[in-house]
Amino acid sequence: MSGNIHAPLTSGTATMDPPADQPQLRVASLGKTFSRNRKTVHALQDVSFDVPRGQFLSILGPSGCGKSTLLHIIGGFEQASSGSLLLDGRPVAGPGRDRGMMFQQATLFPWKTIESNVAWPFIVDGHKRGEARERAHELLATVGLSGFERSYPAELSGGMRQRAALARTLGLSPDILLMDEPFGALDAQTRELMQEELTRIWEHSGLTVIFITHDIDEAVFLGDRVLVMGARPGRIIADVDVELGRPRGTTTKKDPQMAEYHSHFWELIRQEAGPQADRNGGSDRS
């Protein structure tokens, strides 16, 4: 990975970082099967990978490859059938605030104002109302939604709603951000703006992100690393570091390397899909 700056050896400050050799998240031989119409479906098979702290990991794959299931398992919402999942060395049991989940839909409560939606996790956590509102205002400013605190979700555009959802998720102070195609339902222009916005916010945050998408350019533009998944059974078919510099922005998208990555991943997906590529009408949106 490029842009990785190592601390000079002379720095004598003691840090509380965990041992550097331990990945933040370790997924080992993860499998997920379920039965549908008395048939066993292998949603995931032997999925293994490590995620170091602070990495932006894109998981790229066609619909039905189990990438969302994988994210749901990491989030603790679903259980794996086999394999193990270690977070900072400890097995994952159920959802937790250390893994902030962002859904495909913004999932804001329509009966709450934007401010109250973002403040809700703080209220649940036992903060006082005024304090929760203050925190919500700060977070809304971070995602560029100042001035819309008193609006209701129905009054905002899809992009603005996802910004609010991002603010709410950041409010959990998670170690890992789990994003399940959060820009998939947005129009093309809004999606590009949101990608740049997310990059900007992430580059200042030091968060670990696992970002699910079926959009090649999105995966490459955002990610330090891209895992490509294949379907039936869902498994990892490629693990590629993205050697684009940081910070990334509008100019990154014009970088000739972007096009190279695009054709590389497209080739992988085309091979994986094989001659039946068009049978389910599942062409990639790129």
Binding site: G75, F77, R97, G100, M101, F103, W120, P121
Partner: peptide, 11 residues
Amino acid sequence: DQLWLARNVGA
């Protein structure tokens, strides 16, 4: 998703 959100938040 709403119920998962609630679980994520710890409600």
